[in-house]
């Protein structure tokens, strides 16, 4: 079994379980497992820097935030009587539509994989050098980089304003 199929199986399985069970704490943890598998895939794609950043930013920061909110709200389950009866993936409406869409996806994937099988192998010359990435980020993408920093500041201010209790100073 090549590492690719192992990581792919973990990513798909964990992601499926994220949406297939009701306890958000487990959802968050399974998503972290999925991110770990994706990070492994990035290593296979000769992008070790992205792999580590994936762990630091997604698993280390964003998911902690999610876990924090889940614990803070402490309302872990979907509790309405309707939810109690029906498994998240087993509701009649979504099931019919989903079955059609999933069938479409499967057909499309098989078609695409058949087509892509001959063109598939990666050529040499991957850019895994952190210096090269950094140089590109601060020259060619400098404008986008600055815009992202503004985005982060706006998001930070927005989050503080939204989450603060009214009247609190």
């Amino acid at each position: 079994m090549t590492p690719f199929y192992l990581f792919a199986a973990i990513a798909v399985g964990a992601s499926l379980l994220v949406i297939a069970q009701r306890n958000p704490v487990y959802s968050v943890l399974l998503l972290i497992a999925s991110f770990g598998a994706l990070s492994g895939l990035y290593v296979l794609l000769d992008a070790p820097f992205v792999a580590v950043i994936q762990i630091i930013v997604y698993a280390g920061a964003i998911m902690v935030l999610f876990l924090f909110v889940v614990m803070l709200l402490n309302a872990p389950h979907e509790e309405t009587p309707y939810d109690e009866q029906v498994h998240p993936l087993m509701r009649p409406g979504p099931m019919r539509l989903g079955a059609v869409l999933a069938l479409g996806l499967v057909v499309e994937l098989i078609w695409a994989l058949e087509k892509g099988a001959e063109s598939g192998r990666f050529a040499g010359g991957a850019v895994s050098n952190v210096g090269a990435i950094g140089r590109l980020l601060f020259t060619e993408y400098a404008f986008a980089f600055e815009v992202t920093s503004i985005l982060i500041i706006v998001a930070m201010v927005g989050a503080v304003v939204l989450a603060r209790r009214e009247g609190a100073r």
Binding site: P48, F49, V52, I55, I56, G60, V64, L67, F68, V130
Partner: peptide
């Protein structure tokens, strides 16, 4: 990228405690 790996694993250890 050893330094980043140290940093990444340090950021994962918070989960055990939480």
């Amino acid at each position: 990228v050893a330094i980043l790996v140290v940093f990444a694993i340090a950021s994962m250890s918070v989960y055990g405690i939480v």
